[in-house]
Design a protein around this nucleic acid. Structure first.
Length: 137
DNA sequence: ATTCTTACA
DNA sequence: TGTAAGAA
């Protein structure tokens, strides 16, 4: 799949990503500290983001706006392991893979609930509370 | 001109 | 999160 390569290809610097996502450099870097996105680096240590990274940041932005904290987002968005990012998993059809699959399904459901629009502002505070309970330990 | 890291009102 | 400082 050549398309995956294209999506995970690091292309733009943080300045472009800022305009694309309407996020501040501070926020973008902050989310990186929490491993919500792992951009590539140039020889000069400059961050380079891929289309996938940008889309991910948009999802994060969406959740933040809905009042979800970093802890909650970490549960909703599947963790990005430095490897499976650019090299798609065409190997390891193993045990671990099966367990992660069920986790993935769970994440999707949760993601749908949060991402699925149309929610009352009043319910935002509830989302915070609910999530903290769901993900507590 | 841009971006990076670190630190703090 | 914003912003400043000093170095790439």
């Amino acid at each position: 799949m050549t398309d995956e390569i294209r999506r995970n290809m690091a292309l733009f610097p943080i300045g472009i990503v800022m305009k694309l996502t309407d996020l501040t450099a501070r926020q973008i870097r902050y989310y990186e500290q929490h491993e919500l996105v792992i951009p590539a680096r140039t020889g000069g240590n400059q961050r380079l983001y891929s289309f996938n990274d940008v889309e991910r940041l948009l999802e994060i932005k969406d959740l933040i706006e809905k009042g979800v904290n970093i802890a909650g987002i970490k549960q909703v968005l599947l963790p990005v392991d430095k490897d499976s990012e650019d090299a798609t998993i065409l190997n390891e059809q193993t045990e671990v893979k099966r367990r992660e699959l069920s986790d993935t399904q769970l994440h999707r459901i949760l993601k749908q609930q949060l991402l699925g629009g149309g929610r009352r502002p009043n319910q935002v505070s509830l989302i915070q509370g609910e999530l903290s309970r769901f993900f507590r330990k």
